[in-house]
């Protein structure tokens, strides 16, 4: 293969992106040292602030509610990751069965819409429709004999609501990538199956799903980077004193204690902790995908 000798071309192709990353990502990473500093606004800066070792991390883990908050974050984020993967995956397959192109495209466009509304707006809408005091959802539940549910004021229901509304908001947008993967499936596979007399269910099971799995693995692995991001905008708009115990997450607490007060050292320390956990999970799942399925995610 003559391609071997051309590997300088490969390096050249990557170079522009690499330069951008060095300038805008790696250079600023020097700031990670702030995690180990009592970062002073002035008279210090990144290179002059006093070193305090792991003090910032101690502050983070010494709070009475540290474990609770980290667990809340992990729990909500993990379920969001799972359902944000399953929902678009399933939806793409179901949509694939709608034969009329017009219908299929209309549905695609409709489910894509909620992604574009901010949580400030959706928070207000949720407050209305989930109200125990004549909200749409509770009236519907009442019609089938279920007592009103305090969706936003009861800890477990709050978690449910946060996850469900996030999945509802994002599944349409997440579907796009699977639709693109579906478009890449070689139609001759289906033709062959048809000739063999395979049922549609069999075709889905043996052609469609396996073709989508690599994409699902890629999206799933990368989304592990969010394992400690439970969705600041959403929770910040929806949470309230009744659900602090089950709904307070790392980002809301960092916002209250560090961002509002300009404690950049502490914020960096929390960020570093989150990054390390995410990175560990990504490395693990990358390894698993490679060992089990011999597939390199990236």
């Amino acid at each position: 293969m003559r391609g071997f000798k051309r590997s300088w071309q490969f390096h050249l192709m990557i170079l522009p992106s690499l330069l951008f990353l060095i300038v805008f990502a790696y250079l600023p990473m020097a700031g990670i040292v702030m995690a180990f500093q009592d970062f002073k606004l002035l008279g210090g800066g990144i290179f002059g602030s006093p070193w305090i070792g792991l003090e910032n991390f101690r502050t983070m883990f010494e709070r009475e509610d540290s474990l609770q908050v980290i667990w809340n974050t992990f729990f909500i984020a993990a379920l969001k990751i799972i359902f944000n993967l399953l929902a678009p995956f399933t939806f793409a397959i179901l949509l694939n069965e709608v034969r009329k192109a017009f219908l299929s495209r209309t549905i695609q466009t409709l489910v894509y819409l909620p992604h574009f509304l901010s949580w400030v707006i959706l928070g207000g809408i949720l407050l209305n429709i989930l109200s125990t005091d004549g909200g749409l959802v509770n009236r519907a539940l009442g019609a089938i004999g279920i007592d009103p549910i305090f969706f936003l004021g009861e800890g477990n229901w709050f978690r449910f609501t946060v996850i469900a509304s996030e999945v509802w908001k994002e599944f349409g947008y997440g579907t796009i990538v699977f639709l693109a993967a579906l478009a890449n499936i070689n139609p001759s596979l289906y033709e062959a199956a048809e000739v063999d007399g395979a049922s549609r269910w069999k075709q889905t099971l043996h052609i469609t799903i396996p073709s989508l799995i690599p994409m699902a693995v890629v999206v799933g692995t990368l989304s592990l980077g969010n394992i400690l991001n439970a969705g600041f905008d959403q929770i910040f708009n929806l949470y309230n004193p009744l659900v602090y115990e089950k709904g307070d997450i790392i980002d809301t607490f960092v916002y209250r204690t560090a961002i509002m007060e300009g404690k950049f050292g502490f914020a960096t320390a929390v960020g570093l902790f989150k990054s390390i956990v995410s990175m560990a999970l990504i490395v693990i799942s990358y390894r698993i995908a490679y060992k089990v399925a011999n597939y390199r995610v990236f």
Partner: peptide
């Protein structure tokens, strides 16, 4: 995954 944050 990793970033230096806003300041740098």
């Amino acid at each position: 995954i990793f970033s230096g944050g806003l300041v740098p």
